[in-house]
Design a protein around this nucleic acid. Structure first.
Length: 551
RNA sequence: GUCUCCGUAGCUCAACUGGAUAGAGCAACUGCCUUCUAAGCAGUAGGUUGCGUGUUCAACUCACGCCGGAGACGCCA
């Protein structure tokens, strides 16, 4: 928390400093956490770039800044020059103790940085076609998108989670035909199942249910039945994975539903683009002039046979997102869709919206390893690993934690055999164990009558205690980094580091001792730890048991 | 051929988007349980951050060029 507050105060000081020196250029500086071996809480590097700009000695600039900083910021205990011109800052202990007190007081609300809704954010993720069950790759997108949404919400932003349902395209027809073919097979037809149809066994399962209904074939809308059944499966799988959407947005509302003039939203947006000169007709097809904005070629919106492309619906969809009043759009896409980003941004730009507000997170694909061998994944062959299957094998907690451990940019290797072992190879246990240990002590403490709930936290003077408190206090800073970088993985790493420091504390500082005052203070500290761990795991969608199951 | 991402310890990955002596977990080795849960802790070992050139006070991080891996380049979605 205080890093971001300190940073604000330093900005004021440095801006004034620069103004006094008549330096008008922008100076890039940052406030960092120094490497472990340095005895300092923060390191400010501003003196070096300033000195560079005005060709002065960085040490002299640093000295000057230190004088001002010590005068202006009473929470700072010491500030000193180190290395090539870093200003190492140590804050007063009382600031740390106040932070622990804040955690204990605010509990779940600790970390609400934005007091009022400053931004409305729409996170669109998963959005898998309703033609089959979710596979493991969708799981990664679901975990990242949902955790990001939780983090944004925790910071105090207004977030909406949305699933875009592609229920209007070609693939719907294929789904219907696939289902019908399986249905006829069950009824005794010998016709060969078409190779370009969905091969998965789930289609047969749905067909069996339809056969059981005893309806005549003319009464059955195969596409509708297929979508209904598959959507139910998707929703259930996501619920088991701890993911709930605020809205399910149907492509058919844009591509099929007509207004009183007989136009769909897609018709209207294409007409608009054409009228604006952003789309044109060539070879009897309608093209988006996306090369006008950073795309490498123009793209077809409406085919020569009159059918719209997926892109056309998607443009109407994004127009709709902005019209609903969202300030920031976040889309999660598998990295195999990266080629799509440029044309979508171009379209948003050509529609007159600021494409900077459209943030696309491309997450690299998940490769599965089983028995040391890569497992092939294909929707068509039917030979693929579903999210449900993995969640049932390794549990929701391990699965989500695993997905959130890596940067979206990294390809993720998911070893099913290791994940199934539920051994300590999975760091989720390491973090959950912290909570179990804390609650064990809290339970034990209830037997004591000499402990106070308003302890003197300044008794926490040991290195392990101080290190632990400093880490607790980074909670908000890390969430802000996640917000800025659009990745929850920094936070997962943070929880592991916090767990590490807790376990060290646990070994060297016994909580319940004959010293009532110290015991009370340490009890306060571990209660603060449980607040952060429980809040933190919840932000990842992982449970925080108060006791570990026997191994 | 063009584009995206990756290459860091034996393995899987971090490194707060340019900061100081590159960190965790797993695997290996040595110790620590009659005291709040040993799913833990302490210690040992493990590195020319794929290679090269450049940019600067400072490069794992940025630029350019190679090498290697994954993926995308449709009037499919």
């Amino acid at each position: 928390m205080f890093k971001h507050l300190l940073s604000q105060k330093l900005k004021e000081i440095i801006d004034k400093f620069l103004a006094d020196k008549n330096i008008n250029e922008k100076i890039l500086w940052s406030l960092d956490v120094p490497p472990k071996n340095f005895q300092a809480d923060f390191a400010l590097n501003a003196a070096m770039p300033i000195a560079k700009k005005i060709k002065a000695n960085p040490n002299l600039i640093a000295q000057e800044l230190i004088g001002i900083i010590l005068q202006e910021i009473p929470q700072i205990k010491t500030a000193s020059i180190a290395g090539a011109g870093f200003i190492n800052i140590i804050i007063k202990d009382e600031v740390l103790y106040n932070e622990v007190a804040d955690i204990l007081r605010l509990k779940k609300d600790y970390g609400k940085v934005y007091a009022k809704d400053t931004e409305r954010v729409l996170i669109e993720f998963v959005s898998a076609n309703p033609t089959g069950p979710l596979h493991i790759g969708h799981g990664r997108g679901a975990a990242i998108g949902d955790s990001l949404a939780r983090i944004f919400e925790h910071l105090g932003l207004k977030v909406s989670r949305e699933y875009y349902l592609n229920d209007a395209g070609n693939q719907m027809l294929i789904l219907g035909e696939s289902l019908k073919a399986r249905y006829l097979e069950l009824k005794g037809s010998k016709a060969e199942f078409p190779a370009n149809h969905y091969q998965g066994s789930y289609i047969i399962d749905i067909a069996k249910k339809l056969v059981d209904t005893q309806k005549s074939i003319d009464e059955i809308d195969f596409t509708a039945e297929g979508v209904k059944d598959i959507l139910k499966t998707i929703e259930d799988d996501l619920a088991d994975f701890g993911v709930k959407f605020d809205t399910w947005f149907s492509e058919s509302d844009l591509a099929i539903t007509k207004d009183k003039n007989g136009d769909t939203e897609v018709d209207k947006v294409c007409k608009y683009l054409k009228d604006e000169g952003s789309a044109y007709i060539k070879d009897s097809a309608l093209w988006l002039a996306s090369t006008k904005y950073k795309d490498d070629k123009d793209r077809v919106l409406k085919r020569s046979d009159g059918r719209y492309t997926y892109l056309a619906s998607d443009i109407a969809y994004h127009k709709n997102k902005y019209e609903r009043g969202f300030d920031k759009l976040i889309n999660l896409l598998g990295a195999d869709h990266h080629g799509y980003v440029a044309r979508l941004k171009a379209a948003v730009h050509l529609l007159g919206f600021n494409e900077i507000s459209l943030n696309v997170i491309l997450y690299q694909l998940v490769s599965l390893i089983r028995a040391g061998q890569p497992v092939a994944m294909s929707t068509r062959s039917g030979e693929f690993i579903t999210l449900k299957e993995v969640v049932e094998d390794v549990g929701k907690d391990a699965c989500r934690f695993f997905f959130l451990l890596r940067s979206p940019d990294s390809q993720l290797e998911f070893d099913l055999d290791i994940a199934k072992k539920q051994s300590s190879i999975n760091p989720v246990f390491y973090v959950q164990y912290v909570n179990a240990r804390c609650h064990s002590i809290i339970r034990e403490s209830l037997k004591r009558k000499d402990l106070t709930l308003t302890p003197d936290l300044s008794l926490l003077k040991q290195k392990e205690e101080r290190d632990l408190i400093k880490k607790l206090a980074q909670f908000c800073d890390i969430l802000l980094i996640c917000q800025k970088t659009l990745s929850p993985h920094h936070f997962t790493t943070y929880l592991i580091e916090l767990a590490d420091l807790f376990h060290k504390f646990y070994e060297s500082c016994r909580v319940l001792t004959s010293d009532s005052s110290l015991s009370s203070a340490r009890l306060g500290l571990i209660k603060a730890v449980t607040v952060i761990i429980e809040n933190g795991l919840d932000l990842l969608g992982v449970s925080a048991p108060k006791a570990m199951q026997s191994k």
